[in-house]
Design a protein around this nucleic acid. Structure first.
Lengths: 194, 194, 194, 194
DNA sequence: TATGAATGAGTGTTCATTCAT
DNA sequence: CATGAATGAACACTCATTCAT
């Protein structure tokens, strides 16, 4: 691949990343091309469809997060887990596209992303298991829960206009806490269709 | 209003509710009309724009939730708060449209919805304050935090494929817990743009 | 026909007349119905299509003008013709719908209108012939020209923001004038497509 | 701009010119595109809205006429004015769109068109003033009257099925004539609403 | 290889007309 | 008879994608 082609590809990923993160997936490809200073054709040379571009972005993000997870090694297993959890949420909370991916558009089924996603959750699951072994996280949480928990924490941070991190604190507290017999009401449900 | 018109309007709200909740806002109006068994024109007779239809749905949901909140009266303030919190999340977790409203498309600015939203949060805020006075909820949570917390809990429930309510438990535990000095790392951040 | 039905029909003609005259033919039937204070169905009971409503209006106008022409009897033939010509243009110049009919939408082909139109032009033609016999109008004008001349005078009056009647004066002067050998250029044409 | 793009744009202007001139502004954009042999999108690439397309046509026409006016230089001021007047009307009389603009849809308010229109009337006004100074046109006509007079002459020519130019003769004669005290009747008016 | 012109299916919305109440 | 709810063809416009230059 020629040097300028590689540069274009990187620049496109970068710009599209920002634009999608800020304004969501509805932004037209023409806009991405214009902001990146290239022609529409160039976008399609590097990414065969708009979805492919978006998936490339997501893949990139997931891989960064995985790398971070792998490198998060502290003496204390609990601290390792919570530190990493915090970093991920803080990273995602300013990124509408990543958020959409994790929390909303559960419809991205590309193999590469699924594999990367699994790898991320595996790594994260190890941090979790070790933290649980050390008694820092309540034992009934499973690695499979992590995706949902992350999505929720992300949503909290995005919604919260207040100081960053406060919402994460609440979730972390919930993860740490002893599992009590919850107050559960089976009556008075609201059914969605009324 | 004529009987059939009222029937059509109700049916449209219902169908659109389901369709938007399941497949998101991208579904064409034609599709809504077809599934409701009416012509396109009928949709537009009742709701002047697609956005108006969506807003009518949201308004309907918020008002139901507010009614529920007002009627949630138990002896124990903590139980009242948590019971209601649970109900709301469970109601919303099967509703993509409501979720979108609360969590994602923060862009619905119509007065009626803002007013209804404020009313809901006011009612909920009262439940919260009483629960805090009774020592059932950690004191540093403010009524303004509730929206974000709800959005997060909703996201968790939506993502979680497991037994309903487990994710809510985690959040509730986090709300109950003593606020500890959190494990906070200022290093090792992941910046969104890499 | 019941009294209220007759009243509704008359009222509809009146309102539609005004609305079309003021705002042109693009106004929806719903609007006409609303302004007339009746339901849409009532409009369609009296006039089977929108075009039929419009044609009824035009017919009404043409007949009024014909009646006026028939009653315009003065001693002097020239005065009779010019007086009537003036009246017609002044009437039409404040009526966008009539103007559209005569000047623009030459596409109204209904028999009743054609007949009425012919009758009007016949009557007018007689005034013209008599005026020409009296030497008050140049002899090369034919009754068939009258429609075009009227349309032109109407257009002038509509466009002219100035004092009413001045444009009519110019046309009348042109009708009175001796036909001179006109200054005619066969070169320097502008072709429409450039 | 690429060669094929320029060709397409020119062809579109040409076709739309003809179609609008023949059938009026109600023709759908799809039809224009089909007749021009291009896709709908191509129309919108060159003209962002239907109105913009129409305005481009009108602008084109006005500029042609202005160029013609500027180049109309004859020794005799009266001949210059009448020659040009004739040319303009003959050009416009086969053009429904231009006619609509000048005579009917006075609602085109775009700056470019207003400016071009003013330029045209200025040039024409100079021809008029010179012709009046030479005694070839009656003195009470003002440059501001010209638009209405042109619109009227256009309407006459459009309506007249006979030999081209006869209607123009009448108007020219009216412009030339001494202003006499007109035969004026203040009685016997026809009011528009009957 | 990069460009951006061309394409056309798809979408929200309007409005003349029909018909159940 | 009057009403206005229902209908759906028609239209302006968008945007992902292809392909000539």
């Amino acid at each position: 691949m020629r040097a300028d082609a590689r540069r274009n590809r990187a620049r496109l990923l970068d710009i599209a990343q920002q634009v999608f993160a800020t304004e969501g997936l509805a932004v037209p490809i023409d806009e991405i091309a214009k902001r990146a200073g290239v022609g529409i054709g160039t976008v399609y040379r590097h990414f065969p469809t708009k979805e492919a571009l978006f998936e490339a972005i997501v893949l990139d993000r997931i891989q960064r997060l995985t790398d971070l997870a792998a490198n998060t090694a502290t003496g204390d297993p609990g601290e390792a887990f919570f530190t990493y959890f915090r970093c991920m949420i803080e990273a995602g909370s300013v990124d509408k596209a990543l958020f959409d991916t994790l929390a909303v558009s559960a419809g991205v089924d590309r193999d590469a992303i699924l594999a990367a996603s699994r790898a991320l959750l595996t790594t994260l699951g190890e941090l979790l298991t070790r933290a649980q072994a050390a008694g820092a996280v309540r034992p009934d949480i499973t690695p499979a829960d992590l995706k949902a928990i992350m999505a929720g924490a992300l949503a909290m941070e995005r919604q919260s206009g207040g100081e960053p991190g406060r919402m994460i604190d609440i979730v972390c507290a919930g993860l740490r806490a002893e599992s009590e017999a919850p107050t559960r009401s089976e009556s008075g449900r609201v059914t969605p269709s009324g």
